[in-house]
Simulated assay, not measured.
Amino acid sequence: MTKFAPFDPAKYLDSEEAIAAYLEAAAEGGDAKHFASALGDVARARNMTELARKSNMTRAGLYRAFSEDGNPSLNNTMSVLSALGLEFTVKPVKPAKHAARKRAATRA
């Protein structure tokens, strides 16, 4: 039987373009936990110690906050994005997407 290693997206986040595309795709779903986990993947792809220093967090705090089960504050999220040289932007949702998200939210 063939054994496969777990997929680690951090291994493929090797350029600013790849990181931006990855985070943009993660944000499109509207799931905060998924976005936080994706940001954790990006943090692991970068120098975690340096990123912790630049974002005024500990390494352990970064791992914990941006893990699959983490729940980082908006302040921590913004600090990490800034430390990565990224910015948080907001744009209007297209009407069809907005309606789909609204329907999904009412079902939950």
Rank of each mutant, 00 (worst) to 15 (best):
1 M>R: 13
5 A>F: 13
5 A>T: 13
7 F>D: 09
8 D>G: 02
9 P>C: 01
11 K>P: 02
12 Y>T: 13
13 L>K: 05
13 L>A: 05
17 E>K: 09
20 A>N: 05
22 Y>M: 04
24 E>Y: 02
24 E>H: 05
27 A>E: 06
27 A>P: 05
28 E>S: 08
31 D>C: 06
32 A>R: 15
34 H>P: 01
35 F>C: 07
36 A>S: 12
37 S>Y: 13
37 S>L: 12
43 A>D: 03
44 R>G: 02
45 A>V: 08
45 A>Y: 01
46 R>P: 04
48 M>S: 10
54 K>Y: 03
55 S>W: 01
55 S>V: 03
56 N>W: 06
56 N>K: 11
56 N>P: 00
57 M>R: 10
59 R>A: 12
60 A>Y: 09
60 A>E: 15
62 L>M: 13
63 Y>V: 08
65 A>D: 09
68 E>R: 15
72 P>G: 14
73 S>F: 05
73 S>M: 02
78 M>N: 08
78 M>R: 12
82 S>I: 07
82 S>W: 11
93 V>F: 05
96 A>R: 08
96 A>P: 00
96 A>K: 12
98 H>R: 13
99 A>T: 06
99 A>W: 02
101 R>F: 00
103 R>G: 01
103 R>Q: 12
104 A>T: 06
104 A>Y: 02
107 R>V: 03
